[in-house]
Design a protein around this nucleic acid. Structure first.
Lengths: 337, 337
DNA sequence: GGCCGCCATGGAATCGTTTCCATGGAATCG
DNA sequence: CGATTCCATGGAAACGATTCCATGGCGGCC
């Protein structure tokens, strides 16, 4: 079954290939007869232009690449959705690649997307400048979202990783907590680093303990949250409150608490990162550090279109805020202020 | 900045374009000198072959398209992940499109992916045979996953939508329930139809009520689950147990219960579809109808490679099973058997 | 030593589209 | 009415890779 080309359409319509192409791509100088003949012929044959050939000639593909670390993380699923919907408004189709928190898979996606000549790239990158060198050098319009890479001038839209954590720590100390455990994200990501630093800074300005062993380093996946909870709860002097740096690690940690019969809220205060729908359903509902995922996605797409247009938009930081729910009541026997 | 072509590499390496191409695509008859010269030149220039040109000449793109109804539904996020990982094993890159439960967006993705000449397509389709006619007619290797379209011979891998529901209904009646509300999925999807039919059949073989108004028709999204819960709980004779046909509607429904202070388990038994990680964290944990998402994804990819190879694999139905947890205790004042 | 065949190589055709350029006819203007 | 512009059209070049085909060198074999 040889594939159907524009030549078949042209033949059927009795015009030249050039005319057929003009009609099909909406070029103004075409006659009414040519238009109807070609349109009908194309319709009848079920012609679908070969995008490869088209974008080989034009240098644009009308697609953007999106590389995110983990589809199964609800935060990134929401982000992907937001980006995709906004990109549609600009007639871009979003090709979504899931890096699975692996630098190697991420780089493969970058490579293939560059080969596919996407018109632009949105990514929440992992790894360092060196490994991304080839993307940046390729000159493809790029915007970072959620995460950034140090020492690049790639425009980015990121959450405010400081304020939310500060508020959370202050809230917990206000509730009487002095030992606040922290399940950190990987230090190879900007969000992991910034949130940890914010936690440490916030602690420093309170009277709460800042023992290094209150910090557990996870990898943003559920299993490491579980490991973190186990480790922290088994300390000689365990924390009375827990803060986890993303939603999946929160899920893992809460699973461990349930297993051990430790009541969230009652026996252990808990603050999760990212306002996942399911967190509001827990009983008690979870106090979370939330940010506006939709805004982040929309912003990233808008910035990318600017970069594609040759502008250099300024990076944006979107606010986070603490949403206080039932998982962080005052510490029962705690040293009330 | 004119883009870098294989000709630049050939010039730098001092060989012809043909030789450069052979080296870069691993053709056997190349000399060691040519190999090193070309490889070095390509490396040094940072050459990245243009995939458009390449797949215009070869007729394969080494990509598969994946069109799913909703990334934000954890079931589909997991499915996408499973498909993507298995596709990697076959050297396929997965281009993922999110149809957003909209036939129009779905069709646009199909269209673009066909234009991009993906080597194959995996989809959880919505809509009817007519609207998908053009995809099926195009002859592109296709596999349906999770959902199917009636009257096609497209191979599919679907969950057993009957057994799980049957077990759930039986379990609930065993626990003493006589009024079991059902929040159904859209009847435009095969899963929506089959699960509803299974619920109705299962009810018929018990002594439980089978009032039509125990059924609410949702659309697989959270808001409709909430609407369904509101509607069912306000019936003159409200159900004592609720069964929802997917995870997002379950989340919506549980949200309403929390709002109204209706205790899941205590005041209302609840069975959700799909075993989402977060469901196990609720207190009490949710009884769910589970299926093996990973297996479904892997199976779909394997079937697709068979279709691409020209074979016609038989459709597969994967088992579902009921996982009983705390949300379905015996009905307190219920007519125990 | 001559012939055959293999292998690395370069030139050119090819994939399917868009677009440049030349052409000829119609329309417009003074 | 003649000159100029405009516009629809077709032929052919171009995009950047792969691959067919022809060629020439070399080794092996009788």
């Amino acid at each position: 079954m040889r594939s159907l080309t524009i030549k078949d359409v042209a033949d059927k319509a009795g015009v030249s290939v050039a005319t057929a192409s003009r009609v099909l791509s909406g070029h103004p100088s075409t006659s009414a007869e040519a238009r109807t003949a070609v349109t009908e012929a194309a319709q009848e044959l079920g012609f679908r232009p070969n995008a490869q050939a088209r974008s080989l000639r034009k240098t644009t593909t009308e697609t953007i690449g999106l590389v995110l670390p983990d589809v199964r993380n609800p935060f990134f699923a929401d982000l992907a959705h937001a980006i995709e919907q906004r990109a549609r408004d600009f007639k871009y189709l979003t090709l979504f690649g899931n890096a699975n928190e692996s630098a190697e898979q991420q780089d493969r996606y970058f490579d293939v997307m560059l080969s596919q000549r996407v018109d632009g790239l949105i990514a929440a990158p992992l790894g360092d400048l060196e490994s991304l060198r080839s993307i940046l050098d390729s000159g493809i319009p790029t915007v970072f979202v959620d995460r950034v890479i140090a020492d690049t001038d790639v425009p980015s839209v990121t959450p405010d990783n400081v304020t939310g954590v500060q508020e959370a720590v202050r809230h917990l100390t206000d509730q009487g907590h002095r030992r606040i455990g922290y399940i950190a994200g990987p230090q190879s990501t900007s969000t992991g680093r910034e949130r940890l630093a914010a936690y440490q800074d916030a602690l420093a300005s309170t009277e709460a303990d800042d023992d290094a062993d209150l910090i557990f380093f996870g990898d943003f996946q559920a299993a490491s949250g579980a490991a973190g909870a186990r480790h922290l709860l088994e300390l000689a002097e365990p924390p009375t409150a827990l803060l986890a740096a993303d939603s999946l690690m929160s899920i893992g940690a809460i699973g461990v608490c349930n297993e051990r019969g430790i009541g969230i809220g009652a026996d252990l205060a808990f603050v999760a990162y990212d306002d996942i729908e399911a967190f509001a359903l827990l009983n008690p509902a979870l106090t979370v550090i939330a940010h506006d995922v939709d805004a982040m996605g929309r912003q990233a797409v808008e910035m990318l279109t600017q970069v594609i247009a040759g502008e250099t938009p300024a990076s944006v930081i979107l606010p986070s805020r603490l949403i206080i729910r039932g998982s962080t009541p005052p510490l029962p026997g705690g040293t009330a202020l």
